[in-house]
């Protein structure tokens, strides 16, 4: 119990405060990224002069739109990024990763969930992401494709919150990216009903350190980024 609380607390604080690597030397850039990228980006940024801030993609769009002093933005769907590109706020976006959805279940799968159809079961507490964020929209598409009607107990505002509520045992199941859960706590969604979420990254026009921002994007698209992303289960373009 105590460990659950500690983990929950740590996870909450990590998302709330946005973790960053701590290297004082050189110019420090700020990267806004979709919540689902948290671990992969932290791996990639370790030792580099990068500060990360993770949130739901729609919130990232709102932050960049409001003129947040950031250098790079990476979202969990092309739509969110397109809005920024159309508004002239970012340079040409490039796709750097892809992801699929999976069913997150409590450790050991005590509810014996086998597939999407089980999520419609009475009394099962299912948590989804809000359709305002990409993970929620994808989850809705996946459920529609599978013809499953789910009555969620909560629509969380970013995908990590969904994974957290299931991991903490408050909810029985949720739909998250495959990269959000350990294999033991995931039930696969067949490709036929699954979607491929692509992740675009772009340099923010208002960046005060264009060179460092572009260097980060190059690193993300290059070998270090590919290694960090695939180690966390992302698909590569």
């Amino acid at each position: 119990m105590r460990r659950t609380v500690a983990a929950l607390l740590a996870a909450t604080l990590a998302t709330a405060c946005s973790a960053g690597a701590s290297t004082p030397s050189g110019p420090r850039i700020t990267v806004l990224a979709a919540a689902s990228l948290t671990e992969a980006f932290e791996d990639l940024g370790r030792g580099a002069a990068v500060t990360f801030s993770f949130a739901g993609s729609q919130q990232l769009v709102a932050q960049v739109g409001a003129g947040a002093p950031v250098d790079v933005v990476a979202t969990a769907d092309p739509d969110a990024m397109d809005r920024l590109a159309r508004a002239g706020l970012v340079n040409t976006p490039r796709t750097f990763a892809a992801n699929r959805l999976t069913i997150a279940v409590r450790s050991g799968n005590p509810e014996r969930i086998q597939g999407l159809a089980d999520l419609a079961r009475d009394g099962l507490k299912v948590v989804l992401a809000d359709p305002a964020v990409p993970a929620g929209r994808y989850a809705r598409q996946v459920l529609e494709r599978a013809g499953v009607r789910v009555r969620p107990v909560s629509l969380e505002l970013d995908v990590k919150a969904v994974a957290r509520k299931v991991a903490a045992g408050e909810a029985d199941a949720g739909i998250v990216y495959t990269t959000d859960v350990a294999a033991g706590s995931a039930v696969a969604i067949p490709d036929a009903s699954n979607v491929v979420a692509t992740f675009p990254v772009a340099v923010v026009r208002a960046s005060t350190d264009r060179a460092a921002a572009e260097a980060f994007v190059d690193r993300l698209l290059g070998q270090p980024g590919r290694a960090a992303l695939s180690a966390r289960g992302f698909l590569l373009p």
């Binding site: 919130q59 709102a62 948590v127 809000d130 305002a132 969620p152 107990v153 909560s154 629509l155 969380e156 505002l157 509520k165």
Partner: peptide, 18 residues
């Protein structure tokens, strides 16, 4: 949590709507 009509109160609705 945050479910419209059930647990999504004004402040959460504002945050979601933003």
């Amino acid at each position: 949590g945050s479910l419209p009509g059930r647990t999504r109160t004004l402040p959460t609705a504002i945050y979601a709507g933003l």
